[in-house]
Design a protein around this nucleic acid. Structure first.
Length: 800
DNA sequence: GACTCGTTAGTACC
DNA sequence: ACGGGTACTAACGAGTC
């Protein structure tokens, strides 16, 4: 039979010791189909230079290898001699086909270090990645599959076990075209009376999809909204939850932090209740892959934890200060979470249950909307990286780059480099840092008419221009002239990004935006990748050379700008700021064109923007101008604040807001006079205890387990207090606290730490000396105003 | 007990 | 363990007197 097919979920199974790939997706009618494809597991043996003529002899030896293991015997099925490339060099290689992918490692070991052999490679690539790379059956693309229906008892009965329209054993799978894939997305969220798995009880589960909203509970209350359904027990709630997921015909089941909480909690609950949890299309429960963070996998349904995708890929481009659902949803979809007073849990009344159910549903709704918003990004990332959606939504950028390279190596006839072993990782990490970017020390002051230039994708364009990569590295700081595959891949990425950005300008669409963005993120990650110890194509020399050549180029560009008669006021990594003085915009742009003509390779300087005013300040010691700390006002009166406490989440809102207002006033008015009044008023309010405690709350992230701290900062003390109060404390948590007046002895700030809700008055001196004044002092200093002296002087006047 | 000062830690910039 | 280096700064805590 023949069918059109789009693969969504990838899995594999063994049958009679052979590997099969199980693809689950949809046909053109939108019905669910399973396609089983064969895969010939293999890896490569690369011969040393000068031993090419021995290829046949070596291959014959390899042909005879057998590895006996407890459960099975692995044989080499066949070998094939192929002319390939490895790290840009022409090599004669033997492709070794074995019975089972699980044994490639053992066979590679059994071959050992023969004198003719240079290296063994590609035995460390996961089977699904190898399958996609070699068979080119890529996720979320349409294929025409020809094959036979799988009998009910074939392959141990998968056709009967899977809840799909039909299972096909593929003979051929050919790319074709089809309509845009629109997944059936269902979002879920659970509410519980505790955070420990296997303890406490499930209060409610909500589901939200297209024309679908449900809250399932076994807690009674009367007069409820129609979306709430009641059951007798927790077991029945979970049973119905599973039923609805299947009934909805879900492609993507999504939650927020659901890998870390919702799914493992539900699984633990079913273990506790000794019931099944048949979520998958195979009616099996979710499995949790091991790793730093467990990942919940469901057969045939892609479980996506949006938090993980956002934190791995988008976090650095978001404004949100925490990655809480509340903040992220507000920024990305403008949808608000509801509030629920959890202290009521002890004694829930009818309306409290109603509020909880509503809150529970809203979380799923917000998650659903977030999933819809991010879907173009998930789709494009999946198509570009060519890994299954499940993995793409969980990988970090380094791993995306690794996979992008793997799936594009065939264009260069390259055999893949291996992943570093633990000892190799250790060696790489011990190498320490190399010299990085140049940062100009600014002279503190208020400046008028500032021009900012910046290099477009500077590090990526340096890597391309100078051909910097592992495969093109010779020695010291020398790199081959002949174009390497990695710089070429980056160039391709940048060109695609440009192309899609252009199309986007003409014809705005979510998909184009996501595609252009995905390429941008990949290009940005390419430099860090080469310096990352876990990378297959790690090359410290290439990373160091990238930073060095970027620095050389920016320094020489700075000299050119100076020579033209401009005064440089700042520069950081890839940007240069200078004073426009009497020059017109046109003169500046003509000069920019001239610089661009002289820049090497594909390097390009761009106009970032013109600014009306800008302020640079002293560092805290007053010894020099502070780097990475400035504020600008553009020609549309929009502020751009960098590095100041205003943008630091570990300062209280009062200090942040005051600083931001003062910076705005100064940049808009051009002097510091009226700002002083604002400062004075704030101090009077603070001393009069008129400030809302919420504005004095400080938040700091706990970056490691509480016990590992050598030096206990205030947030660690706060976390210890929370722990003592019975709260669960995890590394990564955001800790909120304020500094109060404390009668207890101890000089540490930590001795005056109070948690939100604790009864204490705020510490006036702390907030004055450690928050408000430090936030504004160096700003006033630019105008030769010593805030402390002024305030002291005034209090003296009042005294006498 | 007050002080100095190197270290630890968190956050931001690009 | 899951890009990189540069930079600022608060607070701790050991050592000094």
């Amino acid at each position: 039979m023949k069918t059109n097919f789009i693969p969504v979920d990838y899995d594999y199974f063994d049958f009679k010791d052979k590997n099969y790939i199980q693809l689950i997706g949809r046909n053109e009618k939108g019905n669910r189909v399973c396609v089983v494809d064969t895969y010939q597991p293999n890896f490569w043996v690369i011969l040393k230079k000068g031993f090419e003529k021995d290829a046949k002899k070596v291959a014959e030896k390899i042909d005879k290898i057998e590895v006996n293991k407890l459960s099975r015997t692995t044989k080499v099925l066949k070998t094939k001699i192929v002319e390939k490339k490895f790290l840009e060099k022409d090599v004669t290689a033997i492709q070794v086909f074995v019975t089972n992918h699980k044994d490639t490692h053992d066979v590679a070991s059994a071959i050992g270090d023969m004198k003719e052999i240079e290296a063994r490679r590609e035995y460390d690539i996961p089977i699904i990645t190898k399958y996609i790379k070699e068979n080119k059956v890529e996720p979320l693309n349409w294929y025409e599959v020809e094959g036979e229906l799988i009998d009910i008892d074939e392959f141990g009965g998968i056709a009967g076990a899977l809840d799909v329209e039909h299972c096909i054993k593929a003979q051929t799978i050919k790319p074709t075209k089809g309509k845009e894939f629109i997944p059936r997305v269902l979002a879920y969220d659970i509410e519980t009376d505790g955070r420990d798995f296997g303890k406490g009880s499930l209060l409610a589960v909500s589901l939200y999809g297209e024309n679908f909203k449900k809250v399932l509970t076994w807690k009674k209350c009367t007069g409820d909204p129609d979306y709430v359904e009641f059951f007798k027990t927790e077991e029945e709630v979970i049973e119905k939850f599973v039923e609805y997921i299947h009934q909805y015909d879900t492609d993507i089941l999504t939650g927020y932090f659901s890998d870390g909480f919702d799914l493992p909690y539900l699984k633990a609950a079913t273990l506790k209740n000794k019931t099944d949890f048949p979520l998958g299309l195979d009616r099996k429960g979710p499995t949790f892959t091991r790793g730093r963070i467990p990942s919940g996998k469901i057969t045939g349904i892609v479980h996506i934890d949006l938090y993980r995708f956002i934190s791995a890929v988008f976090a650095q481009y978001l404004q949100s200060e925490t990655l809480s659902l509340r903040e992220v949803a507000k920024e990305l979809v403008g949808e608000e979470k509801e509030e629920f007073d959890w202290t009521k849990l002890e004694n829930m009344k009818n309306q409290d249950w109603k509020a909880l159910f509503s809150y529970n549903l809203q979380d799923s709704k917000v998650t659903y909307k977030l999933a819809q918003k991010i879907w173009p990004d998930i789709l494009e990332f999946t198509k570009i990286i060519k890994e299954p959606m499940f993995d793409v939504t969980r990988s970090r950028m380094a791993s995306h780059v690794d996979n992008y390279i793997l799936h594009n190596l065939d264009n260069f006839n390259e055999i893949a480099e291996k992943r570093p072993m633990n000892n190799e990782i250790g060696k790489r990490r011990d190498m320490g840092k190399y010299e990085g970017a140049f940062v100009f020390t600014p002279t503190p002051g208020l400046y008028e008419n500032i021009v900012f230039f910046d290099f477009t994708s500077m590090y990526a364009s340096v890597m391309i221009t100078y051909n910097l990569s592992k495969a093109t590295f010779i020695e010291g700081d020398k790199f081959e002239k002949k174009e390497g595959f990695f710089p070429k891949m980056i160039q391709d990425i940048i060109e695609k990004r440009k192309k899609h950005k252009k199309e986007l300008a003409k014809n705005p669409s979510g998909m184009l935006k996501a595609r252009s963005n995905a390429y941008k993120l990949l290009a940005n990650a390419a430099y860090g990748y080469q310096g990352f110890f876990g990378a297959r194509y790690y090359c410290r020399e290439a990373a160091a050379a990238t930073a060095r050549l970027a620095k050389e180029n920016i320094l020489s560009t700075i000299e050119k700008i100076k020579k033209e008669g401009y005064k440089i006021i700042y520069s950081d990594t890839d940007s240069i700021a200078f004073l426009q003085e009497k020059k017109t915009d046109k003169q500046v742009l003509t000069f920019l064109e001239k610089i661009n003509k002289e820049l090497p390779g594909i390097m390009e300087l761009d106009l970032e923007d013109f600014y009306k005013r800008g302020i640079f300040v002293f560092n805290r010691g007053g010894t020099s101008g502070a780097k990475k700390k400035y504020a600008l006002l553009d020609r549309k009166d929009k502020m751009k604040i960098r590095g100041f406490e205003t943008v630091r989440r570990d300062w209280c809102d009062l200090a942040r807001r005051l600083q931001s207002e003062i910076l705005t006033k100064i940049l808009k008015e051009g002097n510091g006079e009226s700002s002083l009044k604002l400062l004075k008023k704030t101090i009077i309010d603070l001393k009069g205890r008129k400030i809302d405690l919420e504005d004095l709350m400080i938040k700091t992230q706990l970056k490691k387990p509480i016990k590992e701290y050598q030096s206990k900062g205030p947030h660690v003390i706060a976390a210890e207090k929370m722990l003592a109060a019975g709260e669960k404390i995890d590394s990564g948590m955001m800790i909120y606290y304020f500094i109060g007046e404390s009668s207890t002895k101890g000089k540490r700030v930590g001795d005056k730490v109070f948690l939100p809700g604790e009864k204490a008055e705020y510490n006036i001196n702390y907030y004055l000396d450690k928050q408000i004044l430090p936030a504004v002092e160096n700003i006033f200093e630019v105008f030769d105003l010593n805030v402390k002296e002024i305030l002291d002087g005034e209090s003296q006047k009042k005294l006498f």
